[in-house]
Write a protein that binds this DNA or RNA. Sequence first.
DNA 1: CCGACGAA
DNA 2: TTCGTCGGG
Length: 327
Amino acid sequence: MGNADLRQLAAIEDVAFDDLDGSVVAIDAHNWLYRYLTTTVKFTGSSAYTTGGGEEVANLIGTVQGLPKFLEHGMTPVFVFDGGTTELKADEVAERREQRERYEDDLETAREEGADAETIATLESRTQRLTETIRTTTRELLELLDVPVIEAPAEGEAQAAHMVRQGSVDYAGTEDYDALLLGAPLTLRQLTSKGDPELMDFEATLATHDLTWEQLVDAAILMGTDFNEGISGIGPKTAVTLLREHGDLWAVFEAEDCHVSNADAIRRLFLDPDVTDDVDFDTAIEPDIPAAKAYVTGEWEVPASEVERGFERIDEALSQTGLDRWT
DNA sequence: CCGACGAA
DNA sequence: TTCGTCGGG
């Protein structure tokens, strides 16, 4: 089920933040936000992050606290949001969809029963979907801060990977190993945590195992992806061996007398996802900080103390690069 | 969810 | 080498 097995195959190296200065990173917004949502809500309790109207706005705090990290290292983030249809086509991956619906039912039940914020956050993570309020308020805040936002036709992660291949950005930024399957040439992980980030190199991954992109995806399907259970008994090593031996997924199915439903559709989700080339954005960031602050603390009633330092750091980081440019 | 570790 | 479980972030 989990695709942590992919890590075993990935060519990963540490990279210093200093080396990322001046780079542009397409951030998988869902993935990034979720990381901040869980940690923010989990460690501080939810009351400060819920408005009088009962709206969860921890995302605003997460965004204000998370942005400085990029800017202080001279990086330009481009946030890529999922498009309207994040659900997969019903006939393609029916089982997966049913699973999500079960999760969503759980979530709804928990809400009705007034479950605590932590429980709800956990359930929300499993539905793989952020609330509409979270999506729109994050976007509005980013726009006030003049941070580029891209709307993906479908999956944000696929769009981010595509943008790296296109060359409109330098890296994809996500914790998800799926970026490799989506063919993102260079992916940064651990941008939110304390130490240096990790760099996943797509071509190096293929070269290390002497696989093609298609074969890497096929290996992942054998091991199990977000969209299918893996074949029991096949892990990273065996999967690679089988692909090298038999060539492609269907040859492996035949040789090993096994099968994965919807394999063809799952394969296409990685090899040929719905993405767009229409990605116009400006990497010069000139935020309206007073307006952003008013939006967060005024309109959404977030205590000023929660975001004061974050806004300060954003301001300082940007005036610093301005000075650098000048001298 | 993620990485680590012990069992088969 | 894989799988299941358990503890941490």
